[in-house]
Design a protein around this nucleic acid. Sequence first.
DNA 1: AATATATAAGTGTATATACACCTATAGAGA
DNA 2: TCTCTATAGGTGTATATACACTTATATATT
Lengths: 140, 140
Amino acid sequence: MAGRDKFGDCACFNLRRAARLVTQAYDQVLAPSKLKATQFTLLAVLAPAGKGIAISALAEKLGMDRTTLTRNLAVVERAGLVSLRPGEDPRTKLVSLTANGRKALEEAVPLWREAQSEAIDRLGDEWGDFLKMTRRIAAI
Amino acid sequence: MAGRDKFGDCACFNLRRAARLVTQAYDQVLAPSKLKATQFTLLAVLAPAGKGIAISALAEKLGMDRTTLTRNLAVVERAGLVSLRPGEDPRTKLVSLTANGRKALEEAVPLWREAQSEAIDRLGDEWGDFLKMTRRIAAI
DNA sequence: AATATATAAGTGTATATACACCTATAGAGA
DNA sequence: TCTCTATAGGTGTATATACACTTATATATT
């Protein structure tokens, strides 16, 4: 049974491994900002949102399970970087950046730029394909 | 400051999102086997290893932090799928499949094949590029 | 042999992830 | 209005991830 099944070609394994390694690289560069990659992404997505965005809508935008987002939000809320308040529909909660959150993001952006440049450089010609492919996967 | 920085192009975000979605797809297909994608990978890598492999060597092979592997091994060990015994160098621990582990793997392989086929179909022409790219990232 | 260094592995802690299940409220239909 | 259903969100539980730190043992140096 072994031989024809090349587990080393597993799409899931290869993708997860790549994600692990890239996350470690970003986390290392972002370390001085005290933000992890996931948290940076969260703040960055919230920055343009004027009066806040509902949790489910945010989860959709991030391609993230809603309950995962709930836990991730708890971390940045505890750190005072985002605030949650009820929307007009009292079932909803609107997430928005606090002043501290905005400041933390601004301080982290140069570090992110650095990590991002490094990633783009490493991928070289394949950078465009990389973006297209990861987005195609997300378009399921 | 916003505008030139396209956070939606973040390599880390795009990669993590893709990994989340693909993992969910694999986990769903693998569900009848009771194995999660990570556990399947673990068993699959161990299958050819004759008399066992040391934890650090296995972590290296998987591109995974050693301490992460320790926790992941605890899960499959508790389930009776792998066993750990000291190597010749008493500092090392050799990991190997149990009979139950081998059986669980064999039962899961057809499900994995299904998930893998689906992934390959979805990526179409880009499948080769996908593998090359994720491996290139791992080659850092 | 005694000490210093390097290597293998585990633990404490914290974040990230998601399924199954639960609660609360809005909106539709009788 | 009352009930049914759909939607928004949280909680319990479990796995996945990794850094900082610790323990134990092998190997090298003196």
